[in-house]
C-alpha cells in the first residue's frame, strides 16, 4: 500500500512536470531548433548593437572594398547614377525628402549592408568587411572620420544626424485609438 502510494505520488509528479513543460504549448507541432541554427539565422541588429559580431574596420579599408564590390552599382565615388542609388547623402541633417537621410541608427546601415549587399551576392561579406564598408559610408557622409575604427562597441555609439528629428504623427497617439479629424497622415 505504501508502495503504490509512492508510485502514485511519482506518477502525479511526472504528470505535473509534463503539464508544466507543455504549458501554453497546445498543439505539440513544430520542432526545437538547435542553438547553431538560431545563431546562424539571427542576423537582425538592434539599435543597441547587442547582436553585432566580433570584427572591425575603418573607412580607409572600406574604400578598397567599396571600389571592388560596391562601385559597380553605387558609382565610383558613391554618388550613384542611372537606376542605382548613391551612398551620399545618407545622413543629411536637413531632410527635405532626401532618400535615406532619415536613417536613425548606424546599426541600421551595418545591418542592411550585411544582409543585402552586394546585390549580386547578398550576405557574402565578412564581418570585418561590413564594418569597413559601413565606416566608409558614414565617413563619406561626414558622420565619422576616415581613421575611426568601427566595431561592436563603437558602432552603436555613432550618432546619425537625424537621430533626434523623428516625431510621431500625432504625439501620444497609440495604435487603435481614434485620431483627430484628418490626422492621417
Amino acid at each position: 500500500m505504501r508502495y503504490s502510494c509512492s508510485v502514485l505520488a511519482a506518477l502525479i509528479t511526472v504528470a505535473a512536470c509534463v503539464a508544466a513543460s507543455a504549458q501554453g504549448r497546445t498543439y505539440q507541432l513544430g520542432s526545437a531548433p538547435g542553438e547553431e541554427e538560431i545563431k546562424a539565422r539571427d542576423i537582425a541588429i538592434s539599435p543597441d548593437g547587442k547582436e553585432l559580431p566580433p570584427g572591425s574596420g575603418t573607412a580607409k579599408e572600406g574604400a578598397a572594398i567599396f571600389a571592388q564590390k560596391c562601385a559597380a552599382c553605387h558609382g565610383a565615388n558613391g554618388n550613384g547614377g542611372g537606376v542605382t542609388r548613391g551612398i551620399v547623402p545618407l545622413g543629411n541633417a536637413k531632410p527635405v525628402k532626401i532618400a535615406f537621410s532619415l536613417v536613425p541608427y548606424a546599426t541600421t546601415v551595418w545591418d542592411f549592408i550585411n544582409r543585402a549587399m552586394p546585390q549580386s551576392k547578398p550576405g557574402s561579406l565578412t564581418a570585418d568587411e561590413v564594418y569597413a564598408a559601413t565606416a566608409y559610408v558614414l565617413y563619406r557622409n561626414d558622420i565619422i572620420k576616415e581613421t575611426d575604427v568601427l566595431d561592436a562597441k563603437c558602432l552603436p555609439m555613432v550618432k546619425m544626424p537625424n537621430r533626434d528629428n523623428f516625431i510621431p504623427t500625432q504625439p501620444g497617439w497609440k495604435p487603435g485609438e481614434k485620431r483627430p479629424f484628418g490626422y492621417y497622415p
Partner: peptide, 12 residues
C-alpha cells in the same frame, strides 16, 4: 530594430 526598409526608406 529600425531596419533599412522601415526607416530611411519609409519615413516622410
Amino acid at each position: 530594430y529600425m531596419a533599412w526598409h522601415e526607416s530611411g526608406n519609409n519615413a516622410d
